[in-house]
Design a protein around this nucleic acid. Structure first.
Lengths: 235, 235
DNA sequence: GCAAAAGTGTTCTAGTTACACCCATGC
DNA sequence: GCATGGGTGTAACTAGAACACTTTTGC
């Protein structure tokens, strides 16, 4: 046992562990929720599907490691991320004892470094068609999806999956994908617009219809007002 | 770099970490929600208040470590526990870099090993009067309380804080303590009894009134039926 | 007989659900 | 002029909130 500042170091008698982070990266495109998965080009489990992951370094917090791993794959910073927990079964990684902290991230699928992602063999896969993943990654995905579902219903996090400007039909189809359920168009619009957290623009998206749908923007200031007035975002 | 089964071990180039678990132990007594805290008899931070914690060992899963730590303090097994996440800021433990997985536990405050707890300097403290705790333990408590609040509203976990037999006034005061709000007696009873997950006994608790209140028991079989019928526990 | 907690229904309100037609535009 | 998706209001229903008196019994 060593000493530090003259005090016997009680830590050293304990075991130390490898710690990884794994990212469940959500994107949304054409009505479907997708995950950015990688087809591993390295061992262990070369050739199999997995989440993007990486090891925790001495000099970084776990949150920072998750951000780094996400950035290594997508080039993105300042992304909405949420820890879902740490996974620590003895044999979860057959190679060695490794603990893994799982995070989910919500990104705008049109805006990331596609060459970088391609260099890691990353592919967008619809959430309904997730293949068998290595280790306990399927479990992580299940939990992340559940948590997203729960949280998206009470906090305005869905917007992270859309471009800054989005239409209401787009937004509705996003929430339908997240909840795995259809929503009534009129009730959906009524409820959302009643919260008054959107700014309507004059621009229209004509890519889906001849008439075109107005672009809206989520207004964080209005949202702050809503919360301060004692109300909540709710769907 | 060493080899294992003839494959270069890629793990060894990574850092390894001490990993602890900390337990937020909830109990309920006389209308107040309480936490079992310990006044540390050892360094670091001797004499200060903290959660019960312990280090993860090589041969156990993180969940198992949390159960062990809880048992070391209370003697209890098979307790309702829930992970709230891992905390990994660089300087959260000033002595060394230690990651900590926090779990909350719900126990029946009348049923644990009191001598064992006393030997660890453990004390029940009302949730409204939590002192400054070491490290990031106050943050863990805040998150645990929030999570309990959320989860108790949609799953029948509150019963873990009560004896097998409990009265409806007791149950109501428990939920009032968890939610930090008062509830209407008639609406509360109506809603709970409508779910039909209780078994009413013939016994009465006369400790709080001359008339006495009937003892009820939570019926897991009835609850399973409720869930299978597509309904949910909800408060 | 009275104090103190247990037990019990009904009305009102607000929020959620269900539902169908007109509008704007490109072709 | 017609096909396509965008946009709008109202009525019925259901769940939640508000509310006051009677019952039991130990002292």
């Amino acid at each position: 046992m060593s000493e530090k500042n003259g005090i016997v170091n009680l830590y050293e008698q304990n075991d130390r562990f490898y710690v990884a982070v794994d990212c469940i990266i959500f994107g949304f495109h054409q009505g479907t929720l997708k995950l950015l998965l990688i087809k591993r080009k390295f061992d262990p489990c070369k050739g199999e599907w997995s989440l993007m992951g990486g090891f925790l370094n001495k000099d970084e917090s776990i949150d920072a490691a998750a951000e780094r791993v996400l950035q290594d794959l997508t080039g993105l910073e300042n992304v909405y991320m949420e820890q879902i927990g740490i996974f620590g079964e003895l044999d979860r990684d057959p190679g060695e004892r490794v603990l893994s902290a799982a995070y989910y991230a919500l990104i705008n699928i049109d805006d990331y470094d596609k060459e970088l992602a391609a260099s890691h063999n990353a592919v967008w896969v619809p959430i309904t068609e997730i293949p068998d993943l290595i280790f306990d990654h399927n479990k992580m995905v299940r939990i992340a999806q559940k948590q997203l579902k729960r949280k998206a219903a009470v906090e305005p996090i869905g917007f992270n999956l859309l471009p800054e400007l989005f239409t209401l039909p787009q937004l509705q189809s996003l929430y339908e994908a997240i909840f795995g359920d259809t929503l009534d168009k009129r009730n959906f619009r009524k409820k959302l617009l009643a919260m008054d957290v959107f700014e309507k623009t004059e621009e229209k998206d004509k890519s889906n219809s001849k008439r075109g749908a107005y672009y809206y923007r989520f207004d964080y200031d209005k949202y702050t007002e809503l919360v301060q007035s004692g109300l909540r975002f709710a769907l």
